[in-house]
């Protein structure tokens, strides 16, 4: 029973940590993109595409973490 509880605890903490990492990463991307657009409004379209790709890649890594946590919580 204790082992199971620790497993759930691990899953919860892991999910939280993954979210912190992804939040910091995507926050950085968005901040830089906003700065870039403010400096060079004519490059908005390019910056947006680059931002979405970078955000998607970061999110992908975070989702790997979340999937592992879900597996931990359900097994």
């Amino acid at each position: 029973m204790e082992g199971l509880g620790l497993g759930f605890l691990g899953a919860g903490i892991g999910a939280g940590l993954a979210v912190i990492g992804a939040g910091l990463g995507i926050g950085n991307v968005a901040a830089s993109a906003a700065e870039g657009v403010a400096r060079q409004p004519e490059a908005t379209a390019d910056i947006r595409t680059t931002m979405i790709i970078a955000a998607a890649l970061i999110e992908g890594v975070a989702l790997f973490g979340e999937v592992i946590c879900v597996l931990l919580a359900l097994k």
């Binding site: 999110e59 992908g60 989702l63 979340e66 999937v67």
Partner: peptide
């Protein structure tokens, strides 16, 4: 694999 997990996890989440 990254493409797979990204789409799957996003739609499930």
């Amino acid at each position: 694999v990254a493409l797979t997990i990204r789409l799957f996890a996003n739609m499930t989440a």
